[in-house]
């Protein structure tokens, strides 16, 4: 039994002959915040969508919590104990903040086809607890559709945590947020990792966030993994500097 929540081996995916991701391997251990970075078109989204089940890999294996996850549908990946947040927050706009989280708990308890109980009281306490965790319990009764964007992102995080995941996949968790909000969001993520002992894989464009917060960083370029290490190692990696400063390697 390893402590890895995610193991990716030789992952590859092509679209119409163009390699979007090729031969990518990495691990993510419990309690770690792992950032995946790279210029546009480097294959981050593809890689992310292969792990979360949106895409099927051509080649390679994905192991989540010791179970093979290649080719599973997103909803089956979730059942392995994976929570997700999206770059553009996806929430249920016609429900209250509390109901959004209750909804996720309903699915966790496999109650979604029940026609007898009434939702408002179901799973309420647990959902409120999650809202307290992400710091928006005071807005629990507002419609999700009218919240400020930063708050919707928090709701999303609470929803993603509703199945007690051991692995959290966050696609640009701070996109669309102001600088202060970004730091708060990542501080929150760090504290969740610590208290719940989970692993988090995230993509991010804000380098302050990436280098300030993550435990490890993997760098993709043209679909390949070009560097991996601690923030300091990656910052000083010659290859990474070339990619980001836009100079082609000599």
């Amino acid at each position: 039994m390893t402590s890895n929540v995610l193991e990716v081996r030789q992952l590859a995916k092509s679209f119409g002959g163009v390699k979007a991701v090729s031969n990518v391997s990495f691990d993510l251990a419990r309690g770690q915040l792992l950032a995946m970075i790279g210029p546009n078109g480097a294959g981050k989204s593809t890689c992310f969508n292969l792990i979360n089940g949106q895409l099927r890999p051509d080649h390679g294996t994905i192991t989540i919590l010791g179970k093979k996850a290649n080719g599973l549908k997103p909803r089956d990946v979730w059942k392995l104990g994976v929570g997700r947040t999206f770059q553009i927050a996806a929430s249920f706009g016609s429900m209250t903040v509390l109901e959004n989280v209750q909804m996720a708990r309903l699915s966790y308890h496999r109650q979604t086809t029940s026609l007898f109980k009434s939702v408002p009281r179901l799973n309420r306490d647990h959902a409120m607890e999650l809202l307290r965790l992400v710091g928006i319990e005071d807005q629990y009764n507002r419609a999700c559709g009218v919240l400020a964007y930063g708050d919707v992102k928090r709701v999303e995080l609470a929803v993603a945590l509703a199945n007690d995941p051991k692995l959290l996949l966050m696609d640009e968790p701070t996109a669309g947020m102001g600088p202060a909000e970004r730091q708060e969001m990542m501080a929150l993520t760090s504290s969740i990792i610590e208290t719940r002992n989970i692993g988090v894989l995230f993509t991010e464009h804000d380098m302050d966030v990436v280098f300030g917060r993550s435990d490890r960083i993997i760098v993709l370029n043209r679909g390949e993994l070009v560097a991996e290490g601690t923030p300091d190692e990656v910052r000083n990696n010659r290859r990474v500097q070339e990619i980001y400063l836009g100079e082609e390697p000599v």
Binding site: P74, T112, P120, A162
Partner: peptide
């Protein structure tokens, strides 16, 4: 009454965000 049951909520959830329901196992 069905609209207030878990099934009714799930149905609205499917309408609001297909992406989200898929990612919470529905």
């Amino acid at each position: 009454h069905f609209i207030f049951t878990p099934f009714g909520y799930t149905l609205r959830a499917c309408r609001d965000s297909a992406l989200r329901v898929d990612s919470i196992g529905i």
